[in-house]
Design a protein around this nucleic acid. Structure first.
Lengths: 108, 108
DNA sequence: CGGAATCCATCACGATACTG
DNA sequence: CAGTATCGTGATGGATTCCG
């Protein structure tokens, strides 16, 4: 979790600093509905490497947006989901989806 | 402007492909209120280079989000603003700002 | 299954100089 | 003022190997 002093003054810049990178918004899009397992996420995001998925998830956890639950089973069973703070980002995902649909509807 | 075939199937991914990079969302935040001149934008974004600002603006124009109006004066006078399509992105900016404010309000 | 560790590639981004 | 043209670098992301 960042401290107040590390964050930009502008709220938009603050949010951007949390969802920066190529994949976090797409990860949020997936976690929106339910918890996901690691390999399940990687398969669905198609194109993301293990390293980048690991790094992205860890940053999101560190920022308080996501949680990691290890069931301590063999074979390993780990699930990732959104914290209540992470769920506060869902209006952003919804706005992105709305715009994406609109954009595709008007281009020829 | 991209064609339908170049865009991802997922609407969120479509939107992300349009606002990718480090600066476009911040540029949108500025253009939200009124048209801006080039140097004015560069000063306000503090940290962005001319090249990156030029590249970002050109992509946004190419994607139909922004326009460029050259007054053909000497000294040069050029203004950048949002198209009606670009204004459809404003809910995204608003959602980002809301979240940024909320995030800063709850961290200690 | 869910990673860690390592190495490598690319390109987004940045610095600098110059121009109509 | 509003760029263009070069050139350089470093963080981000990708490929591969190994492990409990």
């Amino acid at each position: 979790m960042k401290t107040k002093e590390e964050l930009p003054a502008c709220p938009v810049a603050t949010a951007v600093s949390l969802i920066g990178g190529k994949w976090k918004l797409l990860i949020l899009r997936n976690l929106k509905t339910r918890p996901w397992r690691f390999n399940e996420l990687q398969r669905d995001l198609e194109g993301i490497s293990q390293k980048v998925l690991t790094d992205s998830l860890r940053q999101m956890i560190d920022d308080g947006l996501a949680y990691r639950h290890d069931y301590h089973e063999t074979p390993p069973h780990v699930e990732y989901g959104l914290t209540s703070l992470g769920r506060e980002m869902l209006p952003i995902i919804d706005a992105l989806a709305d715009f994406g649909n609109y954009y595709k509807s008007i281009i020829q």
